[in-house]
Amino acid sequence: MAKTNPKTTARAKRIRRIRKKISGTSERPRLRVFKSNKHMYAQIIDDVAGHTLVSMSTIDKEFEAGDEKGKVGAAKRIGVMLATRAKAAGINKVIFDRGGSVYHGRVKSLSEGAREGGLEF
């Protein structure tokens, strides 16, 4: 039997606990954030239809490394770019899903960038 990593099981429990409380609709979709060690991913999801409406990440072709300070600055740019894509798709209000991560650092920076871009949480 394979050993399970306590960090991943604890994170999975946090994700389930968050997802019990929030769900995205077509009027107010869910903004989901995932961060790895190298990259940052964000997508806006309609949970009723089960579709991703808009997505953005640091590995996206439109994203270029700029003058921002490290990963936190890149996350903020991801938030701004995601907000402009969402506005083009007609999305103004979202529900924020931090994805089991602490609302600090890159996650907080992404949400602030999305707010600057015009999304309402």
Score class of each variant (00 low, 15 high):
78 I>T: 06
102 V>C: 07
117 G>H: 05
55 S>K: 13
83 A>M: 05
50 G>V: 13
17 R>L: 05
115 R>G: 10
98 R>D: 05
118 G>N: 14
43 Q>F: 03
33 V>Y: 05
71 K>G: 11
110 L>K: 05
81 M>W: 08
47 D>R: 14
62 E>H: 10
64 E>W: 04
113 G>L: 01
90 G>N: 12
60 D>P: 07
99 G>Y: 04
84 T>R: 06
86 A>T: 11
34 F>N: 14
47 D>M: 07
101 S>P: 02
18 I>F: 06
18 I>A: 06
27 E>A: 13
119 L>R: 04
31 L>E: 02
27 E>N: 11
114 A>V: 09
31 L>T: 00
47 D>C: 13
23 S>W: 06
1 M>A: 08
76 K>C: 09
96 F>P: 08
23 S>H: 07
8 T>H: 00
24 G>N: 02
24 G>P: 00
119 L>T: 01
25 T>Q: 07
114 A>T: 12
15 I>F: 10
63 F>V: 03
46 D>Q: 15
29 P>Q: 14
59 I>V: 14
96 F>C: 10
113 G>Y: 01
63 F>R: 03
50 G>C: 15
101 S>Y: 14
17 R>D: 13
3 K>Y: 03
36 S>A: 07
1 M>R: 05
98 R>E: 09
7 K>N: 03
25 T>C: 07
64 E>A: 10
70 G>D: 07
5 N>T: 02
83 A>P: 15
113 G>K: 00
58 T>S: 09
83 A>F: 14
116 E>R: 02
118 G>W: 10
91 I>P: 02
114 A>N: 04
106 R>P: 04
4 T>W: 02
44 I>K: 01
4 T>F: 06
